[in-house]
Design a protein around this nucleic acid. Sequence first.
RNA 1: GUGGUCGUAGCUCAAUGGUAGAGCAGCAGCCUGAUAAUCUGCGGACGCGGGUUCGAUUCCCGUCGGCCACCCCA
Length: 1047
Amino acid sequence: MTFPSWPDGSAHALEEELLQTWQRERLFEQTREATRGAEPFVFYEGPPTANGRPGIHHVFSRTIKDLICRFQTMQGRDVTRIAGWDTHGLPVEIEVEKRLDLRGKRDIERYGVAEFNALCRESVFKYQSEWEHLSDRIGYWLDYQHPYVTCTNEYVESVWWVLARLHQRNLLYRGHKVLPYCPRCGTVLSSHELALGYEDVTTNSIYVTFPLADDPSRQLLVWTTTPWTLLANVAVAVNPDLEYGEYQVDGTRYILATARADLPVSSAKDAGTFADLGPVRTFPGRELIGLGYRRPLDVVPLPEDQRSREVIAAEFVSAENGSGLVHIAPAFGADDHAMGREHDLALVRPVAADGTVTGTDWPAIEGQLVTDKSTNDAIIQRLKEDGRWHLTEPHRHSYPHCWRCRNPLIYYARDSWFVRTSAVKDRMLDLNQTVGWHPPEVGSGRFGEWLENNVDWALSRDRYWGTPLPVWVCQDDPDHVTVIGSYQDLAERWGRPLPEAFDPHKPFIDEYQWDCQCGGTMRRTPEVIDAWFDSGSMPFAQWHYPFEHAEEFEQHFPADFICEGVDQTRGWFYSLLAIATTAFDSPAYRNVIVNEMVLDAAGQKMSKSRGNVVDPWEVIERFGSDTVRIYLLASSQVWFPKRFDERAVLEVAGGFFDTLKNSYRFFALYAGEWTPGGEIGDPLLVDRWLDSRLNATIAHVTEAWAGYDVTAGVRAIMEFVVDDLSNWYVRINRNRFWAPDAEADPVALDTLYRALVAVSRMLAPAAPFVADWLHRALVGTSVHLARFPVPDTERDQALELAMDAARRLVSLARAGREDANLKVRQPVARLQVAVPREVPRETFRTLFPLIQREINVKVVELVASDTDLVRLQAKPNFRSLGKRFGKRTPAVAQAAARLVPEQLRALEEGGSVILEVDGEPIEYLSEDVTVERVVTSDWVVQSDGPYVAALDPELTDDLRREGMAREVVHRVQRLRKEAGYDYTTRIAIALDGAEEVLAAVAGHSEFVAGETLARRLDIGERAPAPDVEADVAIYGATITIGIGRFE
RNA sequence: GUGGUCGUAGCUCAAUGGUAGAGCAGCAGCCUGAUAAUCUGCGGACGCGGGUUCGAUUCCCGUCGGCCACCCCA
């Protein structure tokens, strides 16, 4: 057979062509068929939201997912790879709001919820085809024919089912809590969403004075970073054990913690501090407790039946910042809320659900958004007018923002629905222990610590486009609650069959109501749920479990493997675990690879605003997706941040593919009509060596990938191809593939062929295109239907050691040649080598011919002792000496210099010797001393530890003549190339010029003719009509070489 | 602010309580009938200050800088 030549076009073109072939062959389906019914390997695809474009970081995690899934498929596992789309939630709503230019919920309601949601449903698939296309283009195989889609009726029903189940288990409840709340989106956020939106901001914090009710000249100095919350102030908290002081400024006595007395006494530029002034008196905070005060901004009515405007005690108050007196507004802070309950404080909430001020008798501020700077400015202005303002101070802190709309959040008390995850916290921690995290730190650290601080999952969202919360509440008695777990259940309650075109979304679902047993009306609570709950439900909802596919679900739960970016730690990784724990008391995944972010070349986060976003399409077109995939996998562990630098892409992956391509080209060039599987002779040592290295590599890669270390496996393949296969095996065996007038050695062809086939199979999960091209070229079938290679022979450790020694010595001898200015073409008479004991002598000796060829030396000798070549010298090993000798270490180390060669050799061979140090016998053990070698002989000696190579530098006339002949061969070869001859072209050579050179050639005419394919060699003549002719200097003497075709 | 993490050759990174190692880039050279391949040679007192120790890049404390996470922080 003949092997096709590697296409000349770009990697991009090759990949595009293969994609068409794959499609034509329905290759993905074929691979699915091939392992159907085998032991399953369960993979869950984290559903992307299809309303944003995919980026390079998606290529990253998809490459890892693809690698593991392909690998497991090639191991014969039945790998489920179902695509999924996350379709609900705020991101989708916000996209639509922007498109319609709506500003908030009121606009949406005016526009019509039904119409709005219809647009949301549509917009989700805006980028779907681009996602599918990109996944396809990078070779990410996923079943896009039957994806799970979180907004379908089936999916929603499964989510309802699990919510009803949680309710049965008393894990779903309604609570009134202060929660992070986005005024723009008009909804609460969960703690994991909160984590996504912290930003450093500078706001104006203010110090405000609260005159005491019975003595207005004594004033509490109170600090706040959110002036608008003063509208709802009902108390001031002090720490009863903290020291406070009264400071007299003019007619006023300010009260603040003495630890905070470095505050200025006024806003004047040159104002001194309270500390400068000194306190009139000091006292513990408990003295203040119970005192009444005049509240600032008296614009909100306070209920009479509850306490307000008084000083209360709170342990959490510290003097770290502020004044040591904390303003309490129970509606707008979690601590405040707790204090309010504890002390029966009034709760006023002069802020509407849209974040605007309401219910005050201050017209100027009514309707203002509390997070607007102007609102705070107005409040500060009024405080100034009222004489209650003391100081404004810019305050820089990280403050939570809505992770979707970037607006600042407020803390806001309202009714919400919660999943009681804190009740299963310990269980989640236990189950998390069973998960194989890669890297482990994320699981134990970032994720584990997060679980330790678990709070109940704030599930409900006061929005429109989401899975509706299937909770119906009695209008008359809010304690009458029904949670619907299926559509059948709904129909039964409702009393009629559901309509044909039933849509469980808002607003339609809100029309379903029925009579409560108490006579009231059961209506659905208006909220939808957190979209993270949707995606966390995919293990069962993708099967419409328990309504369908119960068996499939059970076989596919939990997952063997998931993989997402580190940003999903509190996202999908958590929602999967939380739901699996509460609903099934099980982990949702057994192994997870957490990949880090892809940064730009400068290490900056990619963001649209910075304009440093890498377009995956562009990069793939330039390099090909295999190159990008290999780069992302191999440049560093996937859990380290990647600096995406285009130069680095070629550095890491380009060289490897070039080498692989050239190895194949070399093989195809010389394979000719050779057909694998035929009769071949006995393998040589080098062939067995390559087999051994190949088997070692297969074992290494298999182990790495089975253990989810994708990088180690990829690197092992790359090292094998570059170091062992190309740069050593092919190079040293060139003459077996091409020898003048001879067929290529079938044993070498077979060895190289098998190695290339195995490489293509190992590479298939990582670089599916190139691997497939290669496999088709070598074998004729797709690599993706092949099994992953299995080591087929034992490793030959002795041979690998011997070859390793040979390679080292070749390197050393070359360095020696450089040193002595002896070109490799100049033969030398002898090379003496020394190797450490563990190198098996006999095997090593059989490699001498190889060393001879590589070094161009006539004789290689293994010396028993290297004393003739080098002087031995002791280098003390402080590590082992230090352990035994402590303070005497330096003396003992120094004394080691006195060890004589016999002693050093004894040490090197594992013995021990005794030496007297400071009048005391000291025993040196083998590990105490490293023996170094210093060159002493006249020979050219290079050493690397116990490996020594020594060249006899003396050149006889014979050697010189041979060197000249080789030099002439070299020149002729260059001229052949210049003439553009084919490598089989027979030529005629004419040489004229320096006698010395001509004589040398004459003496080696057979060699020269053989190497250059010369059928005619005219010495001392000029060619009559050469194709190429040149004057060249050989050892300083000039000759003229002319070559032409031999007809 | 709190906690973590990192700070080593131009770049990317490694190792170690014992005197610093690799890859890439650069320069010089070798080799080459596959190669923009290989091979050989050339560089750094490990952010700063202090401590523990016979000895610290490695341990401890502080400090500066980068990154990450947490946070009701008034």
